[in-house]
Write a protein that binds this DNA or RNA. Structure first.
Lengths: 201, 201
DNA sequence: TTGTATACTGTACATTTGTACGGTAGTATA
DNA sequence: TATACTACCGTACAAATGTACAGTATACAA
């Protein structure tokens, strides 16, 4: 699967510029606008970069149409939405993606973001209900107090990370369940940034 | 404040087409593409419509730039975000808007959508926490079981609508609070479609 | 060494596109 | 009746834009 690392720095800059223009002005740039932004004296330079970006699968350009530069989001921009929290993380990234959730900000920040469908009621007291969608930022460390996604084997769960008596625990926000001591068999894969729930028709 | 009713049907159609093109293809249409879509034999027809849409405040067009048609969203597309639920609805729509929340879908459906910042803990058991953002569809009727926004005087609250013994009640999802009989002093102004909570930095 | 990718300059040309006119017709409003 | 707005057609032109081709230079891998 494509990712930004196959691009040179310059190509990434050009892609970022195109992306920003589309986002902020709702209007893809013309070749000469791109050239002007980077200080190129020639449109040929832009042509080269665009050709590379097309070839590497990041752009689609329609012939003979002004500004018809399309960013192929699947390869870079989208947040893979995993079916349920149960899905084991190691396999998630590649196969279990069944939907795409677009969060257009924080894209070129370099961080990895993904969505997760919550299963189970272990976090209801924190307002995270079954079937809610949580947006998760991938990171292997977290601070006490944050809501984290932790994986053990094939199982992933959403819990509070808390420090009790010098030790770290995964704490459910539901008195029905007990805190779990954070051992080496768990790995924290990210923290919850946003909770989204759809109710209406 | 502008709204779609100041437009003729044709102008609305043109605006909708432009909007859809931008949304679906990320590329505003050229004049001739618009003409082709509507079967106009002349670009002059398109010029007339665009001129009207600009004059009425729905579009902004940059001169001498291809496809530089910008939709002025404030006037049509955005969801006004009200500061807190406490704000009385009658005044909300005009003055108390302090932010705009973009939900790009369901725009031309004609329904009115707005965002509301939740204050208070009366719905925590339904996973709606203080400071959550709820997206509300304006409607004056609702069905039992739905989460509604009800206004009484200057006060607005989010509650379950339930039918108990033939009568309707506004029911908090928190045992700390009691159900409220739905009398004529309340009016239901909408139902909650989505709950959004931002956690991460 | 040869080939290939990157990263540019420069020029010429065809197409796309926006713009500026002028004209016709229907309808609603003053 | 006059005026204005809507809703089209048609034409001509200049500017914006995409495209094609040729060239230079560097770095890196086969």
């Amino acid at each position: 699967m494509n990712n930004l690392s196959t691009l040179t720095k310059k190509q990434r800059d050009v892609l970022r510029f195109i992306y920003n223009e589309i986002k902020s002005r709702q209007l893809p740039p013309s070749l000469r606008e791109i050239a002007a932004h980077f200080g190129f004296a020639s449109v040929g330079s832009v042509q080269d970069h665009l050709q590379a970006l097309v070839q590497k699968g990041f752009l689609k350009i329609t012939e003979n149409k002004s500004r018809a530069i399309e960013i192929i989001k699947k390869n870079i921009f989208s947040i893979p939405l995993i079916g349920t929290v149960q899905a084991g993380m190691p396999t998630l990234a590649v196969e279990n993606i069944d939907e795409y959730l677009n969060l257009d900000d924080m894209i070129f920040s370099g961080v990895d973001i993904f969505g997760l469908r919550v299963k189970g009621d272990s976090m209801v007291d924190a307002g995270i209900m079954p079937h809610d969608l949580v947006v998760v930022r991938s990171q292997s460390v977290a601070e006490a107090g944050e809501i984290v996604v932790a994986v053990s084997g094939e199982e992933a769960t959403v819990k509070y990370l808390k420090k009790i008596g010098g030790k770290y625990y995964l704490v459910p926000a539901n008195p029905k369940y007990n805190p779990i001591l954070l051992t080496s068999e768990f790995s924290i894969i990210g923290i919850v940034l946003t909770v989204i729930r759809k109710l209406g028709k």
